[in-house]
């Protein structure tokens, strides 16, 4: 019996994850839900570059989830050295709790957002429901799939984009815009908690006529499921989605990983980093890279949360907080 136990313990040790207790040489990137494949491509390239520069072998660990949840986990003790989120509010939350520098938006270029994207549509082969724009989502015969705006930053962009469209159509009439968004939301058959779960619902479960998610994810799905003939639709207007990054100072200081964390995030701005980002259908600011991938990024009219909604803080309070517009919409269905 004892031998079996010893054997078992040895086996467990052999198989167990390289115990990564605070050794320099590994960092954890806590990221948004649909960034899985992206960082799987970025990490080895940066690790190789870091090794060439410093001689240190580096392992970059990934954790993907809704970013609100990630922020909460970090506050509760998740040892993430860097965050790569899809929404500024969740980084701001970390800043308020003292985990991230208060002026985090100035630490890296473009408001600490190395790339951008926006909610786009993915429709089934041949676009049978002829979905062209946000207005089509309010049609009674159209079922749209996107995650729960309460838990998913991805879906908050979708919600706000639809709202912005409604506002523009109604020439700034809030009541009409709200009515429009209500109709759109009432056409959603399933609210998954994360972006990727929504993708699964649309693709694997064949639910809905249109999936709304970041342009990068939309393209990723089309590539991944080439045989299904999905088509991309770019609406007439969408909302600028920024992807803020920050070093989690409190964790990095404790684990002594500030340098490598910073270098990792800076790498996202480098030519090599931007190239991988663009290759994965994220829009980048680097002129050379943007030029190189010009063909895969059709022109689009983007509005900003700041311009239409007066910033994230206000938008969150009005729309997403308990009792906000979103809740009223949910209650009324």
């Amino acid at each position: 019996m004892r031998q079996i136990l010893i054997l078992g313990a040895a086996l467990a040790l052999a198989l167990s994850p390289a115990s990564a207790q605070d050794k320099p040489g590994d960092i954890l990137n806590a990221s948004y839900d649909v960034a899985r494949e992206l960082f799987q491509q970025i990490n080895p390239v940066f690790a190789a570059e870091w090794k060439a520069k410093t001689g240190q072998t580096l392992e970059i660990k990934q954790s993907h989830n809704g970013t609100s949840r990630q922020a909460r986990s970090i506050v509760e003790g998740l040892q993430a050295d860097v965050v790569t989120f899809n929404q500024a509010t969740d980084v701001q939350f970390l800043a308020e709790k003292g985990f991230v520098a208060a002026d985090w938006q100035t630490k890296f270029g473009n408001n600490a957002s190395p790339f951008y994207s926006f909610p786009a549509f993915l429709v089934r082969k041949g676009n049978p429901k002829n979905i062209k724009d946000w207005s089509d989502l309010a049609r009674a015969d159209v079922k749209a799939v996107f995650p729960n705006p309460k838990t998913s930053g991805n879906a908050r962009y979708t919600y706000l984009a639809a709202y912005a469209f409604g506002l523009e159509q109604a020439k700034g009439d809030d009541a009409k815009a709200q009515a429009f968004v209500k109709t759109v939301l009432s056409n959603v058959p399933v609210f998954d908690t994360g972006g990727r779960a929504a993708t699964t619902t649309f693709v694997e479960r064949n639910i809905g006529d249109v999936l709304i998610t970041f342009e990068s994810e939309v393209n990723g799905i089309r590539r991944e499921y080439g045989d299904k003939g999905y088509e991309i639709v770019i609406p007439s207007l969408s909302i600028l989605g920024e992807f803020p990054v920050a070093v989690v100072d409190r964790v990095a200081a404790r684990r002594n990983t500030q340098d490598v964390s910073r270098a990792y995030l800076e790498f996202l701005y480098s030519e090599a980093g931007q190239d991988i980002l663009a290759k994965n259908f994220n829009r980048v600011h680097n002129p050379a890279v943007a030029e190189k991938y010009k063909a895969q990024f059709p022109p689009v009219r983007l509005v900003k949360v700041e311009d239409v909604f007066g910033g994230w803080e206000k938008a969150t309070k009005t729309h997403f907080a308990e009792g906000g517009v979103l809740d009223q919409v949910f209650v009324n269905r």
Partner: peptide, 10 residues
Amino acid sequence: LLIYIRLEEF
């Protein structure tokens, strides 16, 4: 699940 979601919303 609602508990889980409330956790995600802090």
